[in-house]
Design a protein around this nucleic acid. Structure first.
Lengths: 140, 140
DNA sequence: AAAAGATCAAGAATGATTCTTATTTTTATT
DNA sequence: AATAAAAATAAGAATCATTCTTGATCTTTT
């Protein structure tokens, strides 16, 4: 159980809106599912999870909810090649390590204080708004 | 013209095989197209380019050729979100900067001597076999 | 309570990629 | 050089994640 390490509010006292996005029943369950098990699920995965709580929810609605949450900066979308998009409620700047031996995806953080210019040759005047870093390999 | 900064052999004296991959007419034209204009094209882009030389080539064959070239370590496949895959003959370790103001994609190299452990918190025992780094933004 | 606006469910549409199959080309064998 | 076996190609069908469309259902505002 991951539970209270991150203070996930339960249904009753869940905020009515987050970052200006109204928390409907569907959005709340989608978001809670992401918060409760940090497995970088696909839309399909979330759909199956959430159906326990809202049996009538549709896959299209899960896509809508995920999109809305992404647009409001509540979750992040991550990509591995051209596989299904995955979703992640960790908003801290981080990359991902795809462990091929287990199939699991792990968050990778930058060392404190590191800046892009420290390790990349960036052309002068580059304004970076988004970084996506993906490592692949295995834990020996 | 990019031409001879990288010594692209012309059709006649093109190697019969590269990294153990036999250079058929189709593979050769696909590869030459990538080498000659470094624009990170999609399969569709390459298809249109190569049709000038081989009018009867099919899109499926372009996909086959690109796949074969990737499998033999002759080119790299790169991904931007879930857009069409793009291809790149630059085999040096590098990332990509997607400039939203122009739509262009630029190669970004690491500063010489930089190692992953220098800027990332890598769990002990991680064996990295592949890195994909994508930056988005604009040139101010 | 009525009207306007948002959200939702269901299924159709889209688009990149992969797969299938028959044909053609290349290579190996006689 | 002729034949057999293997590899590559063309064409189009199939797949699969995602987006779009439409009508129905909630929510909020009036």
């Amino acid at each position: 159980m991951v539970s209270n390490s991150e203070n996930i509010p339960d249904a009753e006292n869940f905020p009515a809106e987050i970052n200006g996005l109204r928390m409907t029943r569907q959005r709340r369950e989608v978001y809670k599912s992401l918060m409760e098990n940090r497995v970088h699920p696909t839309a399909q995965d979330v759909f199956m999870e959430v159906k326990d709580k809202l049996p009538q929810i549709s896959l299209a609605t899960v896509y809508n909810c995920l999109e809305a949450l992404v647009q409001h900066g509540i979750i992040r979308q991550v990509h591995f090649d051209r596989e299904s998009c995955r979703y992640c409620p960790n908003l801290h700047e981080h990359g991902h390590f795809h462990d091929h031996s287990t199939g699991k995806i792990h968050d990778i953080t930058f060392k404190p204080g590191v800046k892009l210019e420290d390790f990349l040759e960036l052309p002068a005047g580059t304004q970076i708004t988004n970084i996506e870093l993906t490592l692949r390999g295995s834990l020996a």
